[in-house]
Each structure stands twice: as structure tokens, then as C-alpha cells.
Design a protein around this nucleic acid. Structure first.
Lengths: 236, 236
DNA sequence: GTCAAGAAGATTGTTGACAATAATACAAAC
DNA sequence: GTTTGTATTATTGTCAACAATCTTCTTGAC
């Protein structure tokens, strides 16, 4: 892989040539975000401005703003005079977030099923869902199944055409990746998940908004229950 | 020279005695928020850090953070190198936000109708909704009707017991106050609104979650359509 | 008169220093 | 041995100055 290497590009000491779409705080936030989502920073862990600033060779100002951005996404909690720490939601709070996602995914999928652009979308969905079924049957190494699910969700969220909804769902998705992963860890759950996606696809084909909403909600609720079960087992 | 003790005094005269629950950026954000919601700052207006800093006699740092807080609530939009401006959503965007509110209010009212605490809540609701009906029939000066509606919504949002939902709905409510006001400006709409609230109350009495959700959604959608109608007329 | 290029001004972005507060370690008293 | 008060340290909060960038105004050519 030649391109990735994000670290080098983060701080471009002299950037008078490159327009650079992302601001410095955004770049820092993106890097910290990765670490939180991937678990490098554990829930509850304190993030100290000075450390981050030294590591990225910037002053504390941009780091502070980056932390505010992460707070907006619910990845850290900032307490006055106490700094930022990685959010550590209780099982109840995770359930709450899933409930909200269920409702908003319902809206999203209804909008798609009733929207004008669904014809273009269907072939793409068919392909991804087929790969999903395949991956569920023959689990490879890595997290390919999760990756496809996340991509499908991104695709649908963009396709719904409601910009604010996209923002909120994106934020909630980031907050629950960890738990979604947990909920999709067994073959049984993956098969159930595949069936849900197939039903959704059919509802979209039919242009049936009611069905699309109902299925979407059920899909997230299933995910919620599976995650909760694992969380309970894990914390006991 | 003893340190000047910056203008934290603006809002809390003596800080060494009072623990001060709100940080300086939060206080600034609260003040700016008022101005945006009340219309003192008009949609699209640019907010410049220096001006705010001078007015409140603080440096630009806290102002910057305050603006980030307002961005989190969707009250301003911050563009890199362009600063902050009061959000000026299009009719389509306002509709989008109302759609999201409809779904989440549905969840909220279902949670209440199916929740264990509804018995305590019902008398309070009865009282407020009675006052609502009264105010709709005999409109006084001021915006009492709107005030009661906002209070009812706050009450229900708190009662639902889903903390994240409370945060999101609070933010969305702030963003749409202006348009809610617009949508409730005619007697016809207020009467329709009162009927919706009464139906909701009945659903909560019955512990009927499905009905509560359905009515809540319809209530917000009615509000959305009324606001959109006025917005279209106003902008034409 | 219109448009383009450049200069001047205004505004945001970043930094390092200092102040205020919270967390910790330690000592003394009971 | 526990607890309380105090000193030390670590960390966040705020500020003012400087740098980078965007906007606006002026100037000149066509």
C-alpha cells in the first residue's frame, strides 16, 4: 500500500502549496477517533492535552478543539477542569443509543424505499448483500463481514438524502461500532443479520416504505439485543 | 498587580466563593444562544470572534470554544478560515429536521406510555394540556401557548428516561423553535395541536405505546407542514 | 464601463507563557 | 492505623502576540 500513511501528512509544516481540505483540529480528531474506535484508547481513559500536543508536535490549542470535535461525536466526555476522557457508556446507555438508531434507520430506509433514486441503488445493494451472505457462510480472517455492514450503512445513509439525518446517524454509528462488532460475532447472528438485509432489499425493490421502516427497526433492535447479551456476559 | 481576573465576573460576580457550575465558554455560548434563538442574530449573520470577545471582555479563546458548543447544537456553522455564521437552513433542511424530530418524539412518547412512571406524569400533563386548550381558545398577548408547548416537550423529554435522546431532542428543539412558533401562529393550527396533545394524553393513560408513537409522529408532521407553508409564503 | 491583478485591511489559526484549579504525596495529630 | 491538613505537582483555563489566509478596495488595462 503506497498511499495510506496518514501520519506523515498530519502536520504539514509548510502547507502554502497544498490547499488541504481538513483543518488541523480535524486531522487530530480523526487520528484520535481511530484510536478510540479501535480500542487503543480504552473506555474511561483520560486523554491529556499536553501528551497529544507533544506527540503531534502542535500546541494545545488545536488539540483542545479536536477534543471538542470528538465530544460532538460522543467519543469523549469533557468535564470542566477535569479534561477529556474516552466515553464509557453503561449497558443501559448503549441500549438507548441503539434505540435511537433503530428509529432513525427506520426513517432512513423508508425515505429510500419511497424515494426516487432507489432504482440506481438496488444493483449496488444486491451485490453487497450477496457478498454479505457469502462472508457469513465462509468466515475468513479479519472483520470483512463488519466492514461490509458498515459500508452498506454508509451507502444507505448517504442515499437517503437527508443531510441532518446523515450527520446524526454517522455520529451514532461511530459510537456503536464497537458494540455492533460484538453483536455480530456469532454465525447465528450473522445469518439472522443477512436475512434482515435481504428482507430490507426486497422492501426497497417493492417501494414499500412501511415494510422498509419496520425491517430496519427490527434489524437494529436485534443488533442491540445481541450486543447487550455479550456485554452482560463480558462484564459479569 | 494582582491578576485582573478576567471577565468571568460578567455572569458570576465572585468566583472564589461559588464553585461555578458553568464554564466560561458555556456561559458565553448560553448568551449567544439566546440571541440566535430570539432572532437578535439573524440567520446567515456572521459572528466574529473579536467582536464577541470585546463585548464580553474575554480573549478569543473562550469565544472560540463557545462557538464550537453552538455548532454542536446546530445554531451556527463554522467553516474553516471563514468563521462562524448563524445557520440559515433551507425549507428542505427544516423539513428534514422535523422528520427526525417526528421519529424521535415517537420513540420518546412510546417510552413514556410503556414506562413505569407514567402514573405520576399524567396529572401534570392533564393540567398543562388543559391550560393549552384554554390559551388556544382565548389567545392572550405574548407567546404563552408556545411557552406551554415547549414546557410540555421538555417535561416529556426528561420523563422518557433516555439520556442521549434527551440531548438530541433538546438540540433539535432549539434549532426548530423559530419554525415551531411559525407553525402555531393560527387559531386553526392551535386547535389541531390541542387535539393532538389530548389524543397523546389518552394514549399515555391507556399505556398504549403504539398509539403514543403514532400520535407523536403525526403531531410533529403537522407542525412541519404548517411551518413549511408559512415559510414558503414568507419567502415568496 | 468592465474585468483582472495586486495591495491593504480584516479575520481566523496557532503558539507559548502565565494563572487557576484539581490531583497527589506527605506529614502530623489523634 | 486512620484521618486530616498542607505542600507539591500536574493539568486545565485564559491570554496576548504572531502567522496565515481570506476579503475588500484600489488601480490599471482593454
Amino acid at each position: 500500500m503506497a498511499t495510506p500513511m496518514p501520519a506523515a501528512e498530519i502536520f504539514t509544516p509548510l502547507r502554502q502549496t497544498a490547499p488541504l481540505t481538513q483543518s488541523l483540529p480535524e486531522q487530530i480528531a480523526a487520528r484520535l477517533s481511530e484510536r478510540i474506535v479501535s480500542g487503543t484508547y480504552t473506555p474511561g481513559q483520560r486523554i491529556m492535552e499536553q501528551n497529544v500536543a507533544e506527540e503531534f508536535e502542535v500546541s494545545r490549542g488545536p488539540v483542545r478543539e479536536a477534543l471538542r470535535l470528538l465530544e460532538k461525536d460522543g467519543l469523549v466526555m469533557i468535564l470542566p477542569r477535569r479534561g477529556a476522557q474516552v466515553t464509557n457508556p453503561s449497558i443501559e446507555e448503549v441500549n438507548e443509543i441503539f434505540d435511537i438508531r433503530a428509529m432513525l434507520n427506520g426513517l432512513r430506509d423508508r425515505l429510500i424505499a419511497e424515494g426516487p433514486h432507489r432504482a440506481q441503488l438496488i444493483p449496488v445493494l444486491e451485490q453487497d448483500i450477496a457478498r454479505l451472505a457469502e462472508t457469513a457462510a465462509n468466515p475468513g480472517p479479519g472483520d470483512e463481514y463488519i466492514d461490509i455492514v458498515l459500508r452498506l450503512n454508509r451507502l444507505l445513509t448517504q442515499a437517503a438524502g437527508n443531510h441532518r439525518l446523515q450527520t446524526i446517524l454517522g455520529s451514532l454509528a461511530v459510537q456503536t461500532v464497537r458494540y455492533t462488532r460484538l453483536g455480530l460475532s456469532t454465525p447465528q447472528r450473522r445469518q439472522q443479520s443477512v436475512r434482515n438485509w435481504q428482507s430490507l432489499l426486497q422492501a426497497i425493490r417493492d417501494g414499500n416504505g412501511d415494510a422498509a421502516e419496520r425491517i430496519a427497526r427490527q434489524r437494529v433492535i436485534d443488533s442491540r439485543d445481541a450486543a447487550a447479551e455479550h456485554l452482560r456476559a463480558q462484564r459479569a
